[in-house]
């Protein structure tokens, strides 16, 4: 059977370590913001995107990116792609705004990948 990457039920994998590093973390404010944005754009008032579209966006990230990104990184990647596809935001204005946000951030931005907190163990 050909499986897509996210469809991992029944596959071999390492032990669950419920007490180890990475097993739990307090959600960071930005992670909750991702969650809140998704709830709002998918609510009954707006209906801009659905949870199924969120999942499609995550599943379409592909195996490499899927494993590389942390959970809420996958979410915001999918939400953003959906919002661009639907014309709610424009990719150029997004790029400009991300640059401005990073510029204004006291400690600046990260240019290289850093270790993920709360990410998916692979």
């Amino acid at each position: 059977m050909l499986r897509r990457h996210h469809d991992m039920g029944g596959l071999e994998a390492g032990p669950v370590d419920p007490f180890g590093p990475g097993a739990e973390h307090d959600y960071a404010p930005w992670e909750k913001k991702v969650d809140a944005i998704l709830r709002l754009v998918s609510d009954q008032k707006r209906r801009i995107m659905t949870v199924d579209e969120l999942r499609r966006g995550i599943e379409e990230l592909g195996p490499g990116v899927y494993d590389e990104l942390s959970y809420y990184e996958r979410w915001i990647a999918s939400v953003t792609n959906n919002l661009i596809e639907k014309g709610v935001i424009d990719i150029d204005e997004l790029g400009r705004r991300m640059a401005a946000v990073t510029e204004a951030w006291p400690a600046g931005g990260v240019t290289e990948a850093e270790p993920k907190t709360g990410g998916e163990s692979t």
Binding site: I37, L40, V88, L94, M98, G109, V110
Partner: peptide, 23 residues
Amino acid sequence: KPLTHYQAMTEAVGELLIEKGVI
């Protein structure tokens, strides 16, 4: 702490949605 790419994306998307009156 420096802002990561996806944190910047989150902040930017939130700001744009508010500015556009979506939320």
